[in-house]
Design a protein around this nucleic acid. Structure first.
Lengths: 357, 357
DNA sequence: ACCGCCATGGTAAACGTTTACTTAACTTGC
DNA sequence: GCAAGTTAAGTAAACGTTTACCATGGCGGT
């Protein structure tokens, strides 16, 4: 059942059916009605592939994220999808899990799918592979690291602002031993966040202590491990900032295991303001980076670039602000700011009966 | 740059290029080499739409989930994607957010995209719309509620098992006032879980108290609200089972706000065994339903059905087991099992300096 | 030496649309 | 009343592949 069946039944040409469906040019109201009737009766749905083939636009945007499993991204996907559907676009989603192999595959998939543009939200894991995309002169959106080039937009995240707020917040409470759990440092965004942290510390006149800066992986495990290592230090931090919320959650969990109470003994600050942050115990103070806004920026940049025929020569820059959201995972440092040394781990409180049943 | 350019450059016909690329039939090693060389030199990537159009298979599977924002689903998407890519399939993902409008759109998108099959992981939100898909004789996978029909597979989840384990676990600790926060009751899976709970209670000889069964929404907010309402009761539950992990997290958060300590004053059990469960404070005891297994079951069912020409007459049934995972959010009821009445809310412990900076 | 078969590779039709071009029928201005 | 312009609808080519069918040549069996 294709457009010709519809044409036959409505006693018009396929061109007319096409024009009716696409609401392009004026087609006589009478005819249009006949066409729509035929469409309804036959249950006709246009074939996207055929459309794409002949029109040269697939109406698909690629969306490459680094890890769909990180709650930061589903939110983005959700709003990206909403926007896309409104404009009759589809999404070719790919989650690279920080794996170069998958990144390579992703690029290939995008090209074979002849997407009309791609948003690369991997926060700095891009590499030469992406030259394949550039080479195709596709509209592209990067975050943090895009080159100034025709048809590529770049969303610069203003990490400094939120991070400075956070450091000031901690400093105002007289924290001095402030640690930082970074993301994976091959990600440029992770480096950028750490650098912003160090800069803020110096700016305020606090000493940055290298031993209090440890690398995480933007996952729960990384946060857990980080505090595990940190807790072996003789002089422990009184506050810990994290490169994302997952890390912070991992940290809090490890604190729980070690019997370190948050925030009384250790203040924790996250990054992202994931939906979950508010629901942690205690509710997580974190630096907001709006997922909805990021997705909207990315989508609109793509859409705009697709529509214009003369490519913007030097690309476009957007900036996404960040902002501290105060909740309850921070407070004054313990013991009137005296150094806390390692405490003996508290045992887990629970002692349920053994066995599965 | 298309297949003809490659053919020209390799001095062969397009048919030969096609055959080389698809590794179908035997093509002379010499020629094949020339072809691959030409492909590499030109940077040729086959056009998926053209392929789909002529071959009649799009190599795309639809994946409809109810809410990508619920951590249960990203995990599924991830493994579904991995499997798909391995088989050179793409995914057409859609998150319906429990919205009939979006469901309708989703179905239309699937049809226009001429997907080769679709997995509907909305856990019982299906309605007549899906008849449009059935009508197209597509391979389909449902969970819980699929009809016995040609080309449709059905994944039946054995809720009873895990839920019975949980109830027994609670009963073994002498809990009696056990509550349940359901999912949205228009979802058949939510009803199924509640029913399984009630059945287990009776089976064990515990009284099911209607006032302790409240409807949630499978979201954080629902859990929070549920406990908020429950806490107004004169006689409160000593244990609360939840229809999914998000709900449980919401419950724990509200417990925190009310100064009810988990598990000492209230035992909580979740459902799904989301990655997050282990990282909650306290670590959440929950009923596992393997996301990876579910995704694998769904994908393979689709793939198998696509490959066979004679449709399985009555569809196929799979069953997915559930299982209690013990962690630390449950313990013995307080006060030696005496009824606890409403306690006065504890204040939040945190008192950070006001102001953003 | 000839026939038939197999292996290999080419030719061209087909997939379901969009759209440039053409045609037909009106309208308008003189 | 007619040329020119405008509008609506139809005709057919094109998009980039796959694949059914056909052609060619080499080889083995008799």
């Amino acid at each position: 059942m294709d457009i010709r069946d519809v044409a036959r039944r409505a006693r018009v040409s396929t061109a007319t059916v096409s024009r009716t469906v696409n609401q392009v040019a004026t087609v006589d109201a009478q005819l249009a009605k006949r066409v729509w009737k035929a469409i309804a009766e036959l249950g006709y749905y246009p074939n996207r592939q055929a459309r794409a083939l002949v029109s040269g636009r697939s109406r698909v945007f690629g969306l490459i994220v680094s890890e769909i499993t990180n709650p930061f991204f589903p939110e983005i996907v959700q709003t990206f999808e909403t926007l896309a559907v409104e404009q009759n676009y589809e999404i070719l989603l790919t989650s690279t899990i920080h794996d170069p192999k998958r990144m390579e595959l992703a690029v290939r998939r995008m090209i074979e799918g002849r997407v009309d543009g791609v948003a690369i939200l991997t926060f700095g894991m891009e590499d030469e592979l992406l030259e394949h995309l550039r080479f195709r002169n596709l509209p592209l959106v990067f975050v943090d690291v895009g080159p100034k080039a025709p048809r590529v937009s770049n969303i610069r995240v203003d990490y400094a602002h939120g991070i400075r707020q956070a450091v000031q917040h901690l400093a105002a409470m007289r924290h001095e031993r402030i640690g930082f759990v970074t993301g994976p440092l091959r990600l440029r965004s992770a480096v950028a966040r750490r650098d912003a942290f160090e800069a803020s510390m110096r700016e305020i006149g606090l000493q940055v202590r290298p031993e209090l800066i440890v690398e995480g992986d933007h996952r729960l495990e990384g946060g857990k491990l980080a505090l595990q290592n940190l807790s072996k230090l003789r002089e422990q931090p009184t506050a810990l900032m994290c490169s994302n919320d997952m890390t912070a959650i991992g940290v809090m969990r490890q604190a729980f295991d070690l019997g370190i109470s948050v925030p009384q003994e250790l203040s924790v600050i996250g990054f992202d303001d994931t939906r979950l942050a508010e629901f942690m115990i205690p509710p997580l103070t974190t630096i907001q980076m709006s997922q909805a806004e990021l997705a909207t920026l990315a989508f609109n940049a793509l859409l705009k670039e697709v529509k214009r025929e003369a490519p913007t020569p030097n690309g476009t820059e957007f900036v996404l602000k960040t902002q501290l959201i105060l909740r309850n995972s921070t407070t004054f440092p313990p013991n009137n700011n005296q150094v806390r040394t390692r405490s003996t781990p508290k045992r887990l409180s629970q002692l349920a009966p053994e066995g599965k049943e």
